[in-house]
Write a protein that binds this DNA or RNA. Structure first.
Lengths: 233, 233
DNA sequence: CAGTGGTCTAGACCACCAC
DNA sequence: TGGTGGTCTAGACCACTGC
């Protein structure tokens, strides 16, 4: 239920509850969720608050509103966005594959008087006989937002799981620059290729639902990755 | 001024006025725009309406709000998503630059028993002394959906303008694969560079608002283009 | 401290959809 | 016709920023 004494705004609490209902399947793909009026009664808040929550979920792409009909669940199937941001681990799991992470580097660095956890991971998925490496991720996580996050072992659990469960921050939006690069010798060695083929690198910032920057990232996508985007004009 | 009898909602009218003020430079990059309270008096609407307009512009990436300080203009340089799809011509015009298109190839081709107009264009913007070339676009447009579209001269008018005005079809969504490539000799010659630097290519399909595929495209982005994406998880 | 944006209430009227 | 979302009003209180 909603907690009015919580510092988390009602519409965010509501938003998370509705999102849970969608992702867990209680609100089913293609069907309508309770109407705004019904939710007003269910949660005892005004329509403005309901609409703010729904509006954010529409922006997230989970819901869709049709005038006169209702609010529909529209779980776009796996538009396999830029995975690092929708959670690498989950996206691999959904393909029924086993995700693997190697932590290459993990240390505290200082930049502009701010302390960050620098985390470099080689990530991929396990195959019968070998591992298919997919990305090299470099993350900078501000310790002020995630105190003590350097204690966790990210070979064992996913970064976003920890952020979500331990710190209650959910990555929501990312702005990225996309650049073509020629891999250097370390990159070639990690991915296991030799020719001078071009790769994709994405570099940018990740924000939570309040617009707070939670992470700076740089991802190099290996030669086995297909990079897909869906845009709405 | 705002027109209450217009069928266009007040917040949309407001939104357009503010956007104009930003793009025309009356509201300057990095500076604050009038506060919400001031705008309430300026336009004689409630704060809710102001906030709805601002909120949309924040989502567009033109504004940014900071609690306690104000609402700032943040014209991200060249955020210009995947321009080909939001309309190359318009996006260049909004920067107060002059768009230029060279038609390199225009012919009717048949594939899978379907007739397409194949259109290859070199696109860029005009500078004082020279032209800065930005992309090489290859489009395949089904003639069944756009009968007679091969008659138009796309050096003079934009493809999306013609689709919109003459055929009443508005491109809405695109699904793209993004690939790194090494430009071939023709590419190098067109963009005017020589080294073996990697470039970005985007390849995919464009759909109208009903989900009908209106175009297949392949865009090669030149070395002067920064490729930015914003994703919501 | 005054001014800003952030959240929320309790209404109102309208346009659209299905029956 | 009743229910849905779309727009808008006129307030309220709070948290953050800068002086």
């Amino acid at each position: 239920m909603l907690n009015r004494n919580d510092s988390v705004p009602l519409y965010v609490q509501l938003q998370n509850m509705i999102r849970d209902n969608i992702l867990s399947g209680r609100y089913k793909q293609g069907e309508t969720i309770p109407s705004e009026t019904q939710m007003m009664n269910m949660y005892d808040v005004t329509r403005t608050t309901i609409r703010k929550a729904i509006s954010n979920l529409v922006n997230e792409g989970l819901l869709m509103q049709i005038h006169g009909k209702g609010t529909l669940v529209c779980l776009r199937e796996m538009k396999q966005n830029i995975w690092n941001f929708s959670g690498f681990t989950d996206s691999i799991r959904k393909k029924n594959e086993t995700p693997v992470s190697h932590v290459l580097e993990k240390q505290i660095v200082v930049e502009n008087k701010t302390r960050f956890l620098k985390l470099v991971r080689l990530r991929g998925m396990k195959r019968e006989t070998n591992t298919l490496w997919l990305t090299i991720d470099t993350s900078y996580i501000p310790l002020s937002l995630f105190p003590g996050i350097d204690r966790y072992d990210f070979a064992e659990q996913s970064l976003y799981n920890v952020m979500n469960r331990q710190y209650n921050k959910i990555p929501q939006k990312a702005t990225l620059g996309i650049y073509p690069i020629i891999g250097d010798s370390r990159t070639k060695q990690l991915f296991g290729y030799e020719a001078d083929i071009p790769l994709i690198m994405a570099k940018g910032e990740v924000f939570d639902e309040k617009g707070v920057e939670t992470e700076k990232v740089e991802v190099i996508y290996g030669p086995n990755v297909e990079f897909k985007v869906a845009t709405y004009v």
